[in-house]
Design a binder for these strands. Structure first.
Lengths: 128, 128, 128, 128
DNA sequence: GTGGTCTAGACCACC
DNA sequence: GTGGTCTAGACCACG
């Protein structure tokens, strides 16, 4: 899977990285138990600081999405995608609420919003 | 409408405020042309600095959601809720993409996600 | 000539008023020596404060565009449009410079800019 | 590139700064990807407050003209000068309309106005 | 009374 | 080191 970062983005580098890995999992590029590049390798490959990669990995580790093992390296958690929809749903609901508020303020109604969500899910499922 | 902020939140204070006002509009608590508290009043009411409130108001002003008048105060734009979906959809799509990625990683599929979105829209429409 | 103000505008009321009168002269709606409504009449007609109208008139008076006479009321200067392009050109050039800078930053080149200027002049000349 | 402000000007300090930077880009003094001084450095150099510089930079950032990076500083956007004439033209047209009105009131006709615009564009292109 | 601008100094996150 | 946020207090323009 190709990871790339945009130094011009408003998002911090480590957030971009974490988002892309999550995206890769959602899209199926990255499967449970798949290995990820080592911190050093990925950093040099992307031309960014080692600490930045490390921070991204740490974030995902805390979310339980990846497993970091000192000697075996980093890999996708085997239980990712499994049923652990505990506290996340609360967070998600709040985020949806914000997005929906903004959308309504910008004249985008439920129908159109749902259409966009469906498109994104379809995009995720598509092989590309 | 009750506005409140959480100083412990990860979100900046002014972002929280802007979000709540957008939510209030989407939910119908705040109607087009409704006045908002003055910068100073709201600041003292919330126990925060005047400039923080001002920054939130300015953000909404640039989004075209509220109207700021130097001498008459602040109120909801009368054209809010109207159809002015200019460049916002591009931004929205990217945000949905991120949210969907995160959701899939957390075992939340399309069906469930769409259900949550529908619930939020219903919540917005409900009188409460 | 119909004068109207937009209380939602970012521009101050008196600036809007002054701009409209200048526009009316440029467009030919208002001719040299034409009378203008009294401060009180115009204020009540527009539903705004007397001081606001007064301020607009004062601005135009200082620019030499209108003549204010305590007993005879207010009228367009008879020498308006005449040759008094003294200090104004310096101001204008600076304003054009700013506008051109912005335009270039937004990808609008000389050809397009000149086209827009010509359109505006044509619009001014048209009877409507 | 030399930046300087006039504390006696009618324009706010941060507007002056933003204008000068836009001018610098239009004139070619500042090229895409060129770095700008840090907020603190520029502030002390100009003898003004850090926040004032920050406000100017923020304005340009929201216009998409400069790129602000929390840890790497500020630089001219690499896509500035590209063709991204979205909603700006509407704003520009209104500004031109005002300027043309004023000019006609001051006895400056289309021919002279166009001449001035051409001069400014030429000035922008000239090496100096 | 209103918001807008400017100053000053503090702390934080990022890299 | 960088910019971002928050606080605090001042003065100004507008109506």
């Amino acid at each position: 899977m190709l990871l790339q970062i945009d130094v011009n983005s408003e998002e911090t580098l480590y957030t971009q990285l974490a988002n892309q890995i999550r995206y890769g999992i959602a899209k199926g590029y990255l499967q449970p138990d798949d290995p990820l590049p080592s911190v050093r390798n990925l950093a040099s490959e992307l031309g960014i600081n080692m600490h930045t990669v490390s921070k991204a990995y740490n974030k995902l580790k805390e979310e339980g999405i990846i497993i970091v093992n000192r000697s075996k390296g980093v890999r996708i958690s085997s239980s990712v995608l499994a049923d652990r929809r505990t506290g996340y749903e609360t967070v998600l609901e709040e985020k949806i609420r914000q997005l929906v508020s903004q959308s309504i303020c910008n004249g985008i109604g439920e129908k159109r919003f749902l259409g966009m969500v469906k498109n994104v899910f379809t995009e995720m499922r598509s092989e590309t």
